[in-house]
């Protein structure tokens, strides 16, 4: 039992299940899934579908955080890729043609990849602190997106584009397949190659890794490229959903939600050990919370209060001090030794 509780995914998974149970109790239709024209609908399906952009961004963020970094520019990259894609579609002769849309999406993703490479260059090659390096693009990116859309919100009507966010494949939302593809690809690469452990090594001790012959720069660079690319895809899904490129609203606060998802999942912000499964759970927690608040009739503008509460509760649960107090309540002598120990760590 204690082994289960001690597992790093226990608390994230427990929170998610608790949240789902809570929702089901309050509104039984939460669990209900209906089939219409061979397509599945319901609150749970919505959560799976709507979480796609956040999922992609959070996955990239996980890898970046594992390398001891952070990518603040993801929201701006989403705005840029959405702006590029929709501007191309808008300017094309036939916005409804699949090939046009595919080309536009490829270009949008490609631009996002380049932006990721730019971040990677600043961090891995010039050795600039990640938070500062990505701040540059976070500031400038939206400006660039606004210039691309000429300061307007570009709207388009294009069926293939809409399919990305609202279409169905094998009875399930297409966006879900994008998420699953990304999760599978990243997990496979992490498990089946040595990239996972080498990334962790770089995140924990970059210099030691370099001396051991690990291509630290390459790995760090790659993490930002991945993050940028995934953000680019997320930006396309987002614009497909609102059928517009909104340089200001696209990916607003997403870097914060993505970081929150990563932390909720149990990956530490100081880098090193990471868990993809944890991040996936973290994303679902956030999306379920959003859905809950929508149901409760909380204006979406006010929902940040609840996220603040969640963040605070989660960080308190993870905090060593709270652990110590909790142990102090349950056991006498043992806890005293432990507190002496952690004081020693502080002093060491």
């Amino acid at each position: 039992m204690t082994k289960v509780v001690k597992h790093r995914l226990f608390w994230p998974a427990f929170s998610l299940v608790a949240l789902i149970v809570l929702n089901t109790v309050v509104r039984p239709q939460f669990m209900k899934i209906t089939v219409r024209d061979g397509e599945l609908y319901g609150a749970l399906i919505d959560i799976l579908r709507n979480s796609a952009p956040l999922m992609l961004v959070a996955l990239g963020m996980t890898i970046v955080i594992a390398t001891r970094g952070i990518d603040l520019s993801v929201g701006a990259v989403m705005a840029v890729s959405g702006a590029v894609t929709l501007t191309i579609i808008d300017g094309a002769e036939d916005p409804g043609s699949t090939s046009t849309v595919l080309v536009a999406m490829a270009v949008g993703t490609g631009v996002a990849l380049l932006l990721g490479a730019w971040n990677g260059f600043l961090v891995a090659v010039l050795d600039i602190q990640p938070i500062v390096a990505t701040l540059v693009l976070m500031l400038a990116g939206r400006g660039v997106a606004l210039l691309i859309t000429d300061g307007f919100i570009t709207t388009v009507n294009s069926e293939p584009l809409e399919y990305v966010s609202t279409g169905y494949l094998f009875a399930l939302p297409f966006a879900l397949f994008i998420s699953v593809a990304a999760i599978t690809a990243i997990s496979l690469v992490e498990r089946r190659t040595a990239l996972g452990v080498l990334t962790e090594a770089v995140g924990i001790n970059p210099e030691a890794s370099r001396l051991a012959g690990v291509r630290s720069r390459g790995i760090t660079f790659g993490a930002y490229v991945l993050s940028g690319t995934l953000a680019g895809v997320a930006g396309i899904i987002y614009s497909s959903n609102i059928r517009a490129a909104d340089a200001n609203a696209a990916g607003e606060f997403i870097e914060l939600y993505a970081i929150l998802a990563v932390v909720l999942g149990g990956t530490s912000l100081v880098g090193g050990k990471f868990t993809v499964a944890g991040t996936v759970i973290g994303v679902f927690i956030i999306q379920t919370l959003k859905s809950t608040m929508l149901f409760l009739g909380v204006p979406s503008a006010q929902s940040p209060v609840f996220f603040a509460a969640v963040v605070i509760i989660v960080v308190l649960i993870q905090s060593p001090r709270v652990h110590r107090i909790a142990r102090g309540l349950t056991g006498g002598m043992r806890s005293r030794n432990l507190s002496a120990h952690s004081d020693a760590e502080v002093a060491a």
């Binding site: 190659t193 040595a194 452990v197 080498l198 090594a201 051991a212 012959g213 690990v214």
Partner: peptide, 13 residues
Amino acid sequence: LALQAERGVLRRI
């Protein structure tokens, strides 16, 4: 670590 790094990312031990 070093052996793995030498073999490369794809050839995992």
